[in-house]
């Protein structure tokens, strides 16, 4: 599915996740975050960056890994991205939906 966000053409899967991280930029992140009902602030960006780094290194993401990242603990992660933190944060970060149960 092709769509235009912040003046840029991007490809999304049916669930709204970016198909190519190279198309991602901070404006697109802001836009997707708004769709998820999240206003991005200073504390969100390091988390998004961490998720992208992990994705580039092909590490399977989990709540536990984010909690051990040294960037946020699990409580803070839930507070920053309420209502499904790993899913929402991944979508905003432009990486695929994690297939994780943990």
């Amino acid at each position: 599915m092709e769509t235009t966000i912040a003046g840029q053409n991007i490809n999304l899967n049916p669930e709204g996740y970016l198909l190519d991280l190279n198309q991602w930029n901070p404006e697109i992140a802001e836009h997707i975050a708004q769709e998820e009902g999240i206003e991005l602030g200073e504390e969100h960006w390091p988390v998004l960056k961490f998720l992208q780094e992990q994705h580039r290194q092909e590490v399977a993401l989990s709540i536990r890994k984010v909690g051990k990242s040294g960037i946020v603990n699990i409580k803070e992660f839930y507070a920053l991205f309420p209502g499904g933190p790993l899913k929402k944060a991944s979508r905003i970060a432009g990486i695929p939906k994690p297939a994780s149960c943990i």
Partner: peptide, 18 residues
């Protein structure tokens, strides 16, 4: 191997997640 935490840590995660 599957990143499943031990019981004690799992309880902490559950509490932290609300």
């Amino acid at each position: 191997k599957l990143d499943i935490p031990p019981v004690g840590e799992f309880i902490e995660i559950l509490e932290a997640s609300g």
